[in-house]
């Protein structure tokens, strides 16, 4: 934004009912609301964000304020401190506001959380990371594991066959 132009303020109301003032220079990075900034500012409206809380919006704003080369650093800190939940909130917010670069970075961070390249975790590790329980019947799962062990990638072909067979 050029400094000659007076910076306007865009107001948001977060899901936890807090009013949030964001500089125009940041708000234009939210693709979703970019086109309505003129109208919103002229009429002194507040934009409701029903699925973004204040804490997450603060993170998104912080992200948008940083220069591109500092953003990676920001993500590093976030991941060290924050368990998945914060990143998930961030991903939801980034998607809702359509901050493309942030969507990409957060997705990448979570995917690295799930799996590090060169270190392939077993399905149980992944379940722990994303907090999910297997919904395969135990014997089916055992069978799938056995297939993977003995047949390698071929088990994919059989897995499809086995699963649909059992679920019919």
């Amino acid at each position: 934004m050029s400094s000659s132009k007076k910076s306007r303020i865009v107001k948001f109301k977060t899901s936890d009912d807090k009013t949030f003032e964001v500089e125009e220079a940041v708000a234009v990075q939210f693709e979703t609301i970019k086109s309505m900034i003129d109208y919103v500012c002229a009429n002194d409206c507040t934009i409701p964000l029903p699925n973004v809380n204040a804490k997450t919006l603060a993170m998104v704003v912080e992200w948008c304020k940083k220069h591109a080369d500092e953003r990676d650093q920001l993500m590093e800190v976030d991941v060290d401190e924050a368990p998945g939940a914060v990143l998930y909130d961030l991903l939801v917010a980034a998607t809702y506001l359509r901050v493309e670069d942030l969507i990409h970075r957060v997705s990448q961070r979570v995917s690295k959380m799930v799996i590090e390249i060169g270190k392939l975790p077993e399905e149980e590790d992944v379940r722990k990371t994303i907090n999910i329980k297997s919904d395969f019947p135990p014997q089916v799962e055992e069978e799938l594991r056995k297939l993977r062990r003995t047949l390698g990638p071929l088990s994919d072909v059989l897995v499809l066959f086995v699963s649909s067979g059992l679920l019919e």
């Binding site: 077993e122 399905e123 992944v126 999910i132 395969f136 594991r145 994919d156 897995v159």
Partner: peptide, 11 residues
């Protein structure tokens, strides 16, 4: 390559 494992996470 991780798909070989993660596909066993759930249906």
């Amino acid at each position: 390559i991780s798909y070989f494992n993660v596909k066993l996470v759930s249906r």
